[in-house]
């Protein structure tokens, strides 16, 4: 079973907004302090599910693919430390200007160049720009099925059987291979890298592919969608803190206010 997982390096999504700043030159949001980037959370769920799935096969490999500019190798090597076999990147300043179509094209071409893969795992949504769309581009450009928000995946005979999350429950679905699978936190926590894993990952060479090698066409990378400006929306803070000498008193005061306002 040949598996690939697409991952993205993003600012730490747990940083509160008052610790973020906007760089309107690069149209990016950066942490105020020197807080390290992370692998997008849902992508680590994808790595976890891919590793779990691959363990069912005697022969299998998990390749990690990442595109960007100035990637931090300690960050993007995390999936290797978790147990993935190889890491393939494509870095180029022009990637920063691409929109979702450009990125999906680059990833698709990398997948074709380094594959073929039976399954391509991706996080359902990247926490920096929240587009939740690149995996659909991979599926469309490679003309293969996509199953989104997957919790569980099994191979039964020649078929792939998947548990897929929907807003009000779940679905059991069937797909052929190759296919694209997207994951969310329902997969469960990604495994911690072991010390041995970290050591081995640090020694592994990153396979670097140049953007030129992918032979993209101008139309593939010309963005239709551009960010003009990023800003923090104003938030007038006028919370009324309910006082009281005890929780009982506070509860009475709160309920009285809510009644007076007609809220309850």
């Amino acid at each position: 079973m040949k598996i690939c997982v697409c991952i993205k390096e993003v600012p730490d999504s747990d940083i509160p907004s008052n610790k973020l700043q906007i760089d309107n030159q690069s149209k990016k949001i950066l942490p105020v302090e020197n807080i390290s980037n992370i692998v997008n959370g849902f992508d680590l769920n994808a790595v976890e599910l891919a590793l779990r799935f691959s363990e069912n096969f005697e022969e299998s490999s998990v390749s990690i693919i990442s595109v960007g500019n100035n990637l931090t190798s300690d960050v993007i090597k995390k999936p290797l430390a978790m147990g993935a076999d190889e890491l393939i990147t494509c870095e180029d300043p022009s990637i920063e200007k691409m929109d979702i179509k450009g990125i999906a094209k680059v990833l698709s071409k990398m997948i074709l160049k380094t594959g073929p893969y039976d399954i391509i795992f991706c996080g359902r949504h990247a926490s920096d720009f929240d587009n939740a769309s690149v995996p659909f581009g991979i599926s469309e450009f490679l003309s293969i099925p996509l199953v989104n928000i997957v919790k569980n995946i099994k191979k039964i005979n020649k078929k792939i059987i998947i548990e897929r999350i929907i807003t009000d429950g779940f679905q059991k679905v069937e797909s052929k291979m190759p296919l694209v699978v997207t994951t969310g936190n329902q997969v469960g926590d990604p495994r911690y890298p072991t010390l041995k894993g970290i050591m081995e990952a640090s020694k592994k060479q990153i396979k670097k592919i140049l953007l030129e090698e992918l032979e993209l066409e101008q139309n593939d990378i010309k963005p239709k969608v551009k960010i003009e400006e990023i800003y923090f929306p104003e938030n007038e803070n006028n919370v009324e803190i309910i006082e009281g000498n005890s929780n009982k008193e506070k509860a009475i005061n709160l309920i009285t206010k809510l009644k007076a306002e007609g809220v309850i």
Binding site: L20, I22, I29, S127, E228, I230, Y231
Partner: peptide
């Protein structure tokens, strides 16, 4: 954008 911690103006062709 950014998990709704910020907003962006986008221009679309």
């Amino acid at each position: 954008v950014h998990g709704e911690s910020a907003e962006a103006i986008y221009s679309v062709d």
